[in-house]
């Protein structure tokens, strides 16, 4: 059975990527199961999806712990649990153009790594929901069991609901992703059907009764949400040009939905990159156009603008 995990953000078409790949595998004669996985977070927040494809009815359900292929929609996601469960046999495919061997070393990734080859490096400039189609195309080629025509049909079928323009763009990008990885065709191998119980016996405990003040979902501190780094959602970074800033002290800070810009009278405002989600409302709202948007290419780190 193939076990494939996609990682992206809300709005990058990752759910669609999984359904394109699932449909293409189904049309290629496989039994298939695919599902998106999201939590409470919204557009921009990291999410994942999975595809299982086997030769007989799939009983296994839920999250994939031991993936054969992990597909990552952009380099800013290469933090956290994205690499979890990768083994020497598995493949990591990143929608990026950093040379694969450099990336493998940098991440200390146990498996093989694929990125766009130099000739196709412009593919990483893709934005929005089209990223899903692109990643599905690349993944299809890496599996090596999906024909170009089958992929094309799956792209059109799964993206049709997004409008004819989106379907055409998705078809083109999906096929471009497929074509770009010709040299890596079929490099993902199929995992065993039953990998066995992956986990050790549980370290069960008997819960004791706690004091009710402890045992209610109450938060007794203020503003603990600041511990949540929503800056990781960002794919574009607003940067203030001090030379252009009129130091009005209110426009960007008031209009920022996330309270992520702080200003003192007469000073250039400070953007809180730990929390800025990259909506870029400030870029358009700034009267002297002192805020520019720069693409993120690395996992955003706290308060550390480059």
């Amino acid at each position: 059975m193939y076990r494939i995990r996609f990682h992206g953000r809300g709005g990058q078409g990752i759910r669609t990527a999984a359904s394109v790949l699932g449909s293409a595998l189904f049309a290629s004669g496989r039994e298939v199961q695919d599902a998106p996985r999201y939590g409470a977070e919204r557009r921009g927040a990291p999410m994942s999806a999975h595809v299982r494809a086997g030769r007989s009815v799939i009983v296994e359900r839920g999250a994939i712990a031991q993936p054969d292929l992990v597909v990552v929609a952009d380099p800013t996601l290469l933090a956290g649990g994205v690499l979890q469960g990768l083994s020497a046999q598995s493949v990591l495919f990143l929608n990026g153009s950093e040379p694969a061997d450099e990336l493998r070393t940098r991440l200390a990734c146990p498996g093989r790594v694929v990125t766009w080859p130099g000739a196709a490096r412009e593919l990483e400039e893709t934005t929005g929901v089209a990223i899903g189609a692109l990643c599905a195309g690349g993944a299809a080629r890496l599996l090596g069991v999906i024909s170009r025509t089958t992929l094309e049909q799956a792209l059109l079928a799964e993206i049709a609901g997004h409008g004819s323009g989106a379907a055409e763009a998705g078809r083109a990008l999906g096929l471009a992703g497929f074509d770009a990885l010709a040299d890596s065709a079929g490099m993902v191998g199929e995992g065993v059907d039953d990998p066995g119980a992956g986990d050790a016996p549980p370290d069960w405990v008997r819960l004791a009764l706690d004091d009710a003040s402890l045992a209610a979902p109450d938060v007794f501190r203020e503003a603990t949400s600041e511990l949540v780094q929503t800056g990781l959602w960002r794919t574009s970074r607003p940067v203030i040009d001090a030379a252009l800033c009129s130091r009005c002290s209110w426009v960007c800070t008031t209009l920022c939905p996330d309270s992520a810009i702080h200003a003192k009278a007469g000073e250039v405002p400070q953007i809180d990159y730990e929390h800025c989600k990259g909506c870029l409302v400030c870029v358009l709202a700034c009267p002297p156009h002192a805020i520019r948007a720069l693409p993120e290419r690395q996992p955003a780190t706290a308060g550390n603008p480059r």
């Binding site: 359904s19 189904f26 298939v32 199961q33 695919d34 599902a35 998106p36 996985r37």
Partner: peptide
């Protein structure tokens, strides 16, 4: 929810 509602299968 999720395990069936959002999971596609044949």
């Amino acid at each position: 929810g999720f395990h069936l509602s959002f999971t596609r299968e044949p």
